[in-house]
Design a protein around this nucleic acid. Structure first.
Lengths: 339, 339
DNA sequence: GTGAAAGCGCTAACAC
DNA sequence: GTGTTAGCGCTTTCAC
């Protein structure tokens, strides 16, 4: 383990001063060919690579951004992380990954890390209702972009999916297949994603003359999915199609349905939201509203870079979603469609 | 955006020198209560946090480790990343996440980053057969621990699952349910994971007097899963139970089975490896050999920390796997068990 | 127990 | 074009 070569070493080898080499490396200079060649040769010979910490210390920034997600081992956030890493890498930015476990204290901790320039900027995804502390902390630091789920009252660039359209598409699909008695199983009532997915769904149903007989809000967990489906079955046997606001909730719902031998598609049509899990391989394959995760990542990184570049405004970007038709909603025949 | 306070500011506020405050903060000193109190007060008042880059530059290390995985949006690696982040965080280490897309050039790139002290150490997971370049690069830097899949010929701490036992468990399970004509669908033949899972499976089958009629090696991809199952169905209709070496392969296999209306469990029993995807929610739920991802992460971080602490040896850690019985293998009745 | 001073490797004025 | 110089914020001898 020998000590790595420094800029100084390269400069000496090339018969130049460190400053010149530094400028050359940072592109702020066009050198005469032979000087440049000498530097290149020295770098090559010494296998020099700049020390990122010295660089960061000196420049006051690190070319590193952070991504904070509730849990990385959730298919949606895993995909988001992969996509953000790709985008960041393409932009010459390194990525630090943080997971908050959806806990406020950890979120604040990482926000503090940003404030202390550990990273130049932060892409922030949360999943719980904020009591205001988060909003306050985010307001402290610029260079935060909020993604996927809103933090109420925060002025920051934001990147979301078009949840309303997603709800609408789900309703349209079920209605087109003859379903008239619908239900919604969603996340926390206080969360933007939940509200928007629901409102798109409800409004489209109303427009088409179908009814949303029930809506179950709760945490984005397996358990809530399980229980909501239990209640749905018991309290609203007339419902033939349900829109489920996330993959996680779907898994819970599927468990309940299997336990009670109610058939997905035939007994109860299902459309879910996210499409991050391997839904195509389920039996039956699950119809879903797909979020454009790559797009979310691209726009989030873009927004962050603009922020880092000094742009002061707080654009809100909405990414289109897409209905991926699989087999979890059957066409309802005329007989049974009579409520 | 005001400039954050420095150690100097704290020292001034406390009426001390930066050196003293630094030592106090680094625990290399027990100060008289009132001095300590003054420092604490100053820190509190200024909301001081140390600049990590200055710290790293000065100390020559960063308390940051890297995790390199082929793709973070693969359920297994997503879980690994989550678990490693948790372990690292508990050890006071930050985590940089890299994904290689399973490409050698990117793997080498990140290894180089390690060599340059961008991170203190690297937990390295690869998924393809090495031609020797990787092994060479890893040999260059100490402070690499290899996890999940071996890189042949490398002297480094290694953490793997007990793949042989996994194969054995899979065989035992199917045999106990009356299956005698077995098959294996695996990853690349040159990879340790593939070889070990196969050998455990084959040996146990032989021991129990069952036969492994076919083994299909190939990349760990959906496509290979699909095709292997096609061939299995065509070339070995006598097979009643298959052991599939990863979730990814499983998904491909399931697709083929559904397309051809061959029933999982009844027509062909399936046991898979990893158990990282939501297999419990499939229909039928898929029986699997579960890797102890949390254990892999824990041991990998532990091994890396020992390495960072100066321990020179290269232990190989094997983590036990577990059979999770679900419903993808039916008991074979006596009639059909007659090959 | 505490301070002064040097230095980690780099960048950024400022000179020439 | 290129060199000199002065930091960036921290840790760490070496003194006292």
């Amino acid at each position: 383990m020998v000590k790595p070569p420094s800029l100084q070493d390269v400069a000496t080898a090339a018969g130049l001063s460190p400053a010149t080499v530094s400028r050359y490396l940072n592109g702020s200079l066009s050198l005469p060919p032979d000087t440049a060649a000498r530097i290149d040769a020295a770098i090559e010979a010494l296998k020099y690579q700049p020390n990122p910490y010295a660089r960061s210390l000196s420049r006051g920034r690190s070319d590193t951004i952070g991504l904070l997600v509730p849990e990385i081992d959730n298919p949606f956030f895993a995909r988001l992380a992969a996509a953000v890493e790709r985008e960041a890498d393409a932009a010459g930015l390194a990525l630090m990954l943080y997971s908050s476990l959806n806990r406020k204290d950890r979120e604040l901790h990482y926000l503090e890390r940003l404030r202390r320039n550990f990273v130049d900027g932060l892409i922030f995804a949360t999943n719980h209702v904020d009591d205001g502390d988060l909003a306050a902390a985010i307001a402290q630091s610029s260079n935060v972009v909020v993604v996927d789920e809103d933090v109420a009252g925060v002025a920051a660039p934001k990147v979301f999916s078009d949840n309303v359209a997603g709800g609408r598409l789900a309703a349209e699909h079920m209605i087109a297949l003859g379903h008239r008695r619908l239900a919604f199983i969603g996340g926390p009532e206080g969360l933007m994603s939940s509200q928007e997915r629901f409102s798109g769904f409800r409004d489209e149903a109303k427009r088409a003359g179908a009814g949303v007989e029930a809506a179950f809000f709760g945490p984005y967990t397996l358990d809530h999915g399980r229980e909501a489906l239990c209640r749905l079955l018991k309290e609203h046997p007339e419902v033939t199609g349900a829109f489920i606001a996330s993959d996680e909730l779907l898994f819970g719902a599927l468990e309940t349905m299997r336990n009670r031998s109610v058939s997905v598609g035939r007994d109860l049509g299902l459309v879910t939201f996210d499409d991050a899990g391997p839904l195509a391989f389920f039996d039956p394959p699950i119809t879903a509203i797909r979020q454009d995760v790559g797009g979310l990542a691209r726009e989030a990184v873009r927004a962050l870079r603009e922020r880092l570049g000094g742009t002061p405004d707080n654009p809100v970007c909405r990414l289109p979603v897409e209905l991926v038709v699989r087999k979890s909603v059957h066409a309802l025949n005329a007989a049974s469609s009579t409520g």
